[in-house]
Design a binder for these strands. Structure first.
Lengths: 257, 257
DNA sequence: GCGACTTTGTGCAGGCGTTCACAAGCGGCT
DNA sequence: AGCCGCTTGTGAACGCCTGCACAAAGTCGC
């Protein structure tokens, strides 16, 4: 979340007095503007569900169907999609191919992005082998580690480089996203190195809070915290075994994140 | 998120007419009640930061110090902690040991919890070796897989069992949390098996939406989605290179999740 | 013992996100 | 051609969360 300077303050030059041209909202003209953070995460889910649908011969989906498959409310889904513009047909639904194109465009997936993985312990190696990356246009372009025993080895066709050469390879490969999978003690250091190399998006797997200058996006994946959240709910459940089953949630998946 | 039946409807037996005894709010008497979901995730972060602090010889922290280390606003931190009750001393701060105890209690970490990992591919193996689990009282009690080539092998001292025997071991080991690290195609099936075995908390790493009956908490960790969220921001950044650096965020870490 | 200083705990207002409910719009049937 | 049914797109209300600002409350020094 963070604060995200509320209005994004449109510069005086581009006045934009509630621009609205023949029923098209302003954001349709400028699809890069102001999609709520919570929506972004769901758009990625919709995209995945749609990809699964293309396997069959369905060419049109209604918001109800898609919402069910994505595990969300259909009103929410329509509102989410409306941030991209109006690509549905009333009385019919959404054309799958069109929607996939729009979602991909909005998420910036039409251009391939190169990612680097720093740290090739168990987790880093698992990440390097994760098939889900390539299928969404993410190219693992470089692997880095600080352990001399690992440097020079080949993992899934890529040579592990010395993290000291990070800047060089980031520039050469045009890497814009970095994955940090190193021990806590080295995480901030690696983060600084990535920032220094002009990587502006970081996904951090180390269980620690990183700090970076503004303009750099940091997201974290923290397994221990996920478990502790589950533990909390588990604790509550066991503390009031009877009648306490009034916890509303049919198709869970706890949003947040 | 999900809806979470707002009031949790206190049972008629325990009337509780806005209970407030000498300045202590009701939730202090019943620490299991109503902590906002967003707060829970942060409590786990505070706990980790505090643990790091105990390494030194500091025994007291102020909300400002702790907030800085945790990467949040100090007002938010105080409000978060206030859900646990009043354990700070005005003019001084919070006693580290006490706070750790309270946080651990609230998150249900005082009792050890047994977890099972289903699926021992790259990711599952990495998870089984993750040190951060044990240090927070999570005991990896069983490993399951469906691949005959993996069943019977030993990973970090634990024998991999046939997923068909899941129910048996879950009962014997008292497992309450299950980690799903299997391919998408098997995820729902494994989820159902866990639910059938009375596992009521699930952490899903497979990139798919799972459905489970209410009362079962499901959280997901989806790497591809994390990357797509970063991709979106990366896309926006590159689309308006100049002046667009008004993105407020000094010590990022995008809350949500 | 008292005053000044420090830090907590929280009331309140504002913003963001979710949900409902319905008007607008499109296709198909007669 | 006109009507009917279906589905989208969105205005508006609600609720949760955040952040400010300040009163309450404790400590330290004299």
């Amino acid at each position: 979340m963070a604060q995200r300077t509320s209005g994004s303050s449109p510069r005086p030059g581009e006045a934009r007095p509630v621009a609205r041209i023949n029923g098209a909202a302003a954001h349709e003209l400028d699809p890069l503007r102001a999609i709520p953070e919570a929506t972004i995460a769901r758009l990625a889910v919709y995209l995945r569900v749609l990809s699964a649908i293309t396997e069959g011969d369905t060419t049109v989906v209604s918001s109800d169907e898609l919402a069910l498959a994505a595990g969300v409310n259909s009103a929410k889904l329509r509102k989410d999609l409306s941030y991209l513009g109006s690509y549905g047909t009333r009385g019919v639904g959404y054309e799958v191919g069109t929607l996939i194109g729009q979602l991909s465009g909005a998420l910036g997936l039409l251009q391939d992005r190169s990612v680097a993985i720093v740290g090739l312990g168990n987790l880093g190696q698992a990440l390097s082998g994760y098939a889900g990356f390539a299928s969404r246009g993410f190219r693992i372009a470089a692997l880095f580690d600080a352990d001399p025993a690992r440097i020079g080895t080949t993992i899934r066709g890529l040579t592990v480089r010395d993290v000291a050469e990070l800047g060089h390879y980031v520039a050469v490969e045009g890497i814009s996203i970095g994955l940090i999978a190193v021990p806590v003690t080295a995480a901030q250091e690696v983060c600084d190195a990535l920032v220094a190399a002009d990587v502006t998006s970081i996904l951090n797997f180390a269980p620690t809070v990183l700090s970076a200058p503004e303009g750099v996006d940091i997201r974290k994946v923290d397994l221990a915290i996920e478990l502790q959240i589950l533990s909390y709910h588990e604790h509550r459940k066991s503390a009031r075994p009877p009648s306490a089953l009034v916890r509303g949630r049919a198709q869970a998946q706890l949003g947040d994140r």
